[in-house]
Design a protein around this nucleic acid. Sequence first.
DNA 1: GCGGATACTAGAACACGTTCTCATCCCGAG
DNA 2: CTCGGGATGAGAACGTGTTCTAGTATCCGC
Lengths: 207, 207
Amino acid sequence: MATPAGAPSNELSASLATEPETSAQRARRARIIQATLALASRGGYEAVQMREVAERSEVALGTLYRYFPSKVHLLVSAMAHELERMRLRLQRKAIPGETRQERVSYVLERSTHSLQRDPNLTEALVRAMMAADATVAEEVTGVRNQMADLIIQAMRNGRPATAEDVAYAGILQDVWFARQIAWLGGRVSSEEIWDDIEQAIALVLRD
Amino acid sequence: MATPAGAPSNELSASLATEPETSAQRARRARIIQATLALASRGGYEAVQMREVAERSEVALGTLYRYFPSKVHLLVSAMAHELERMRLRLQRKAIPGETRQERVSYVLERSTHSLQRDPNLTEALVRAMMAADATVAEEVTGVRNQMADLIIQAMRNGRPATAEDVAYAGILQDVWFARQIAWLGGRVSSEEIWDDIEQAIALVLRD
DNA sequence: GCGGATACTAGAACACGTTCTCATCCCGAG
DNA sequence: CTCGGGATGAGAACGTGTTCTAGTATCCGC
């Protein structure tokens, strides 16, 4: 049932044990995720149709469901995959900024813009996160831990994190997701979103 | 298309103009909302089935769709209805508490508990809010304004609200919704939710 | 009261997520 | 290499949100 999404980055990332897979199976899983991302990028949540994903990844519908027990599992796993890419990209160089506000702003802005450059994809992924019920708890927790890692890394800049830091990261993440929802609910523009998020960062992390 | 949900409480509540309706139409609308709440209360989001709602409210399926163009519209309107009841109940007596933290905690706790006393109903309503796309923007904005009104009223305790107050109310609302999602995603207990929300209140409203 | 427009009813029809069936393939144990 | 069992393929089938059609009722201006 566990859907491994990439290597954990630190103590927060639940390392979902990956049961052994043949290389053909790894390849199938990769093809499925790629097809999912392609379809999501083209037409958002509704364009990710299970029959279409199966066809594109050259896998039977039943097999797709064996790998990912629901559309939401599939998309949340795809989000984990994208976040992992983003984490690797960010890790290559040190996070700029003197204060933790500046660094957290930098990381969240990079992530937000990197996602919103592909609004359809973002819509699909965020919508899936919000639609997740208890059966997807494990995967969702993985994604949240990945995001929390990103934020905490920026806040602490290498120094060990306190319980307070984790709580702050949680709140910022809540605001981040809620603002994404507001955006894809057509209620605010992407600029307004960013203003709101920065305001929340300033508020939560003020000294 | 607009679905009026009750009288606005102050300048924030968008007063959706209610086009004239015959009393039979008002009665149909009321029956539909009641049937929706009953089904949601019994089995949550998935138990609110459009055919079942139509049958219980003694209305043809097509008519149901004329009144509410989708399941999400229907549930968001039901949420507006519930919030309006809550607002009226709270309005009857002054909000207790010396500081704005105390008052906001009081209001949000009352609201949260009042909702979580009926977890199935809460699940249905919150899930609908998160599933709302741009076509439901108007109704969602109505609900958000109702909640913001609640919070701002508690913060200001009668005094006029500043732009900052509105922003704070927005952040608190974001956290509130995100924590509800986490709860119905099976990732945290209802006690943890409440701790998280109180922490966010303390953080955002600290002096 | 009449006639035309609009609203309503009953039910079929369609789309897509999900489940099921059964035949075939592949992989590891012996 | 052979066998047995799990994995996969192909496709039918089902449930529920949504749309459509045709006929009937209701309302409103005259």
